[in-house]
Design a protein around this nucleic acid. Structure first.
Length: 155
DNA sequence: GCCAACGTTGGC
DNA sequence: GCCAACGTTGGC
């Protein structure tokens, strides 16, 4: 089992939005970054743990838990010319953008903020979230980091 | 709203 | 293949 952190802007799609979806499940569409795509396409397995992170908001941080809920499959918006996610260079026979579904698990009792995570950077070790200039929207989390971050919730 | 970081694009 | 221009991300 692998662990991940996935960023979302709450104004666009929040953890509450995920919770309120039918089956509490949503395709993680709109990813147009190759590194993030590769994680979804090559490394994610059904049941993998997901830290749901709110970015670009008042208090950026981890707000809850989700899980990978599907095998990888093509993002349909890449073929829709009306969509802002349309990619005219994606070949339907060999789709460029691949996603997985994400299912809601629970909210944390409180937000574990980026500020707080940074304060524990030394304990967390190498972590994409706290690396300088990090812009990845999907990143791997080690088991140790997962446990540590969820432990912070209770402090 | 600002701006640093950084990925992508396209001319050459 | 280089690299300047440009667009986006995302913290602050």
């Amino acid at each position: 089992m692998n662990y991940w952190l996935m960023k979302s802007e709450p104004d666009a799609f929040s953890l509450d939005d995920l919770k309120n979806r039918p089956d509490q499940t949503e395709p993680w569409d709109g990813v147009r970054n190759y590194q993030a795509r590769n994680f979804m396409r090559d490394d994610m397995k059904i049941g993998d743990g997901v830290l749901f992170y709110h970015s670009n908001c008042k208090t950026p941080g981890i707000v809850g838990l989700a899980e990978v809920a599907s095998e990888p499959y093509p993002d349909r918006w890449q073929f829709d010319p009306e969509s802002s996610y349309f990619d005219p260079r994606s070949d339907p026979d060999n789709p460029r953008w691949i996603l997985v579904d994400i299912r809601y698990k629970r909210h944390l009792d409180r937000v574990v903020s980026l500020k707080e995570i940074k304060a524990h950077a030394e304990d967390l070790g190498d972590f994409a979230l706290t690396r300088k200039g990090n812009r990845l929207s999907i990143m791997p989390v080690s088991r140790q980091q997962w446990d540590y971050l969820i432990d912070l919730e209770k402090q």
